[in-house]
């Protein structure tokens, strides 16, 4: 009966994962491997294709002050506008992750302040994990899989923009070698969210209890879903250490952008999350 409960939990989390996250790993891998005939993404590999891609997805224009427009080169403007639309998408993704978190059995019964803390510290880790299925060694899908942006293009942007994605590619290529599927991912994301060691938590015990149940469910899931993959559970959990470092570095880069880019403005939700984070 206990393992039946753990299977039911896995099913439930997989269902809410499918409900809240529009681009699944299965769909992303089909697009990346060219297995869907109707879904060939537009490739952004230079500034010209970036402009075309922008027009294609009708990305919202970042309001620019007129007097600055003449001071700045057109390319600078494009980079800022692109990262501005990345921020809007990230904010949307935070709200999707929040809905997913609320669907984890027991989460909404936790102290509301602890729910906030778990999201504040967990959400960027979750977003990085969710980026992995969209990436391969050559680039990443963006805009719900409509666009493929090459890794080389991201590396060619001016500093510090060019340093933003490279660590995520390095992580993702290794993470993808574990070959988790969407149902495994759903449980892993819940484990990340339910971390009892986030700074400032008021009531750790119920969080640890919830996480323990999800961990059991993940362990069972991986054994059943990947019977030939030795120590997969341990390998997946080890990724959580890399994730914390990635988030620390990412937040530092964002701080740097705030100090160096005149026209940089951080989305209010992302500001809330990153303020006093690490």
């Amino acid at each position: 009966p206990e393992s039946a409960d753990l299977r039911a939990l896995a099913r439930q989390l997989y269902e809410s994962y499918l409900k809240y996250f529009p681009l699944t790993k299965a769909k992303a891998r089909a697009i990346l491997s060219g297995k869907t005939s109707d879904n060939t993404p537009f490739v952004i590999h230079d500034m010209k294709s970036l402009l075309e891609g922008e027009q294609m997805i009708n990305c919202r224009q970042m309001p620019m002050q007129e007097h600055r427009r003449s001071d700045m080169g057109i390319m600078h403007e494009v980079e800022l506008r692109f990262f501005h639309s990345c921020q809007s998408r990230s904010a949307e993704a935070v709200s999707e992750v929040t809905e997913f978190a609320k669907s984890i059995p027991g989460f909404v019964n936790l102290d509301l302040n602890d729910q906030v803390t778990l999201l504040k510290y967990g959400v960027i880790e979750v977003l990085i994990i969710m980026m992995a299925p969209l990436m391969n060694k050559d680039g990443t899908l963006i805009s719900y899989g409509q666009i493929f942006m090459t890794r080389e293009f991201l590396k060619s942007l001016r500093k510090p923009f060019c340093e933003m994605m490279e660590p995520k590619f390095e992580f993702s290529v290794k993470f993808n070698m574990l070959e988790l599927d969407d149902s495994d991912m759903a449980l892993f994301l819940a484990v990340i969210i339910l971390s009892g060691d986030r700074p400032g938590l008021l009531n750790v015990k119920p969080i640890e209890d919830l996480q323990e149940t999800v961990l059991h469910s993940l362990e069972l899931q991986l054994k059943m879903n990947h019977p030939d993959s030795l120590q997969l559970f341990a390998k997946v959990l080890q990724k959580m250490t890399d994730l914390r470092q990635l988030v620390t570095d990412h937040v530092q880069l964002i701080q740097l952008l705030k100090e160096t880019e005149v026209d940089w403005c951080l989305h209010p939700l992302l500001q809330e999350i990153m303020r006093d984070l690490y």
Binding site: S95, T98, L112
Partner: peptide, 20 residues
């Protein structure tokens, strides 16, 4: 609470995601 107004709103909002 003031520091995390939007997160609070997202968490307490019962069904549809709030307009960001």
């Amino acid at each position: 609470k003031e520091k995390h107004k939007i997160l609070h709103r997202l968490l307490q909002n019962s069904s549809s995601p709030v307009d960001l």
